[in-house]
Computed example of a mutant assay.
Amino acid sequence: MWIYGRNPVLEAAREGGVRRVLVARGVERKFLKKLEAAGISYELVPRIELDQLVRTTHHQGIVAEIEEIRLAGPDAPLRLARERGELPLLVLLDGITDPRNYGAILRSAEALGAHGVVSETRRSAPLSPVAVKASAGAARHLPVVQVPNLPRYIEELKEAGVWVYGLAGEGEVALEAADYDRPLAWVIGSEGSGLRRLVRDRCDQLVHIALRGRTPSLNAAVAAGIAVHWALAARRG
């Protein structure tokens, strides 16, 4: 898998998952010294080679081949929660197809302390280089799960004692009024159509984030970050 951009490549190199680094000829010497100081070996190549490799010109002159990130098993999030001695908190994605949103959700979930992000194989963005780049390294530190059937996975979580909240503008419960003192999974729908009916019907409750401005909705990644942060803050409080 190839990733690009200076910060994502430097982060991946610090984690030790980089196989090869390519740098465009003509990149400023100051940046090359930064790579050398970090002990990162690199090859100088024509910039057009990077353009063709990652199919964009927005690579900032650096591309890295990294080890493939393996998807986790369906039970990995609950297992991680048990290992930490914490109440489970999962993020389930229903129809998030933008890889940048997907990566941003992975980043927020890992940074805030959730135990895993789960999406459906056919109705979500893949764990692509774009998603990995947007996750800023989080995809390597968090169970990332893809299941063939999200409604069925929700039923399995409920059988395991996990309470499932669907985030929806028309939710009957306000974010600040929900009960977070139990195993919990947030379900985040797509920005366009929200939660599918099959998913919505399996949620224990629908929860809304109160909006006070004129903008009618939030970006899915922003909404997911708010929901995860609120749940964890409520537990600590």
Rank of each mutant, 00 (worst) to 15 (best):
E28A: 08
V23Y: 04
G85P: 11
A168W: 05
P46Q: 14
A13R: 11
A38I: 03
S193V: 10
N149V: 06
R79Y: 02
A174F: 00
L87E: 05
K158V: 08
G213I: 01
L195P: 08
D179C: 09
A76R: 07
R70Y: 06
L218E: 11
D94S: 04
I48T: 14
P143H: 05
A24F: 04
P148K: 09
L167G: 09
C203G: 12
A168F: 03
K33V: 01
A64M: 02
A234H: 13
G103V: 01
Q52T: 14
K133I: 05
T56M: 14
G17T: 09
K133R: 15
R122Q: 10
S41M: 09
A72W: 01
W230K: 13
S119R: 12
A72T: 03
R212G: 11
I209T: 07
A224N: 03
L150Y: 00
I66H: 06
A76K: 06
G116F: 03
P8H: 07
Q60M: 12
A136R: 05
H141K: 07
Y165C: 03
E159Y: 08
V91C: 01
D98V: 08
A139D: 09
E86T: 06
E176S: 14
W186Q: 07
Y165A: 06
A111N: 12
P8W: 10
I188S: 02
N101Y: 01
G137S: 11
I188E: 01
R152E: 15
G189L: 00
R140P: 04
L53W: 10
L167S: 09
G39F: 00
R47G: 14
N101D: 04
D75K: 02
V187T: 11
T97W: 02
L10T: 13
Y102F: 15
V162H: 01
T97C: 07
A227Q: 04
S135T: 00
R20K: 15
P148W: 07
A114F: 00
K34W: 10
L35A: 11
S124C: 13
W186L: 11
V130F: 11
R196P: 11
A139L: 08
D204Q: 05
G16L: 08
E11G: 03
R122K: 13
L150R: 01
L10S: 15
D181E: 15
K33N: 09
V164M: 07
T56L: 14
G116P: 06
E15N: 14
R212W: 12
R122P: 02
L127D: 00
K30S: 15
I209L: 12
A12G: 04
V118E: 02
E176T: 13
R14F: 01
P129R: 10
T121R: 15
R47N: 09
L167T: 10
R47C: 04
L142C: 00
V147I: 05
I96V: 15
G113I: 05
I105G: 06
A210R: 13
I154N: 09
R82S: 07
A13G: 08
A185E: 10
G5K: 08
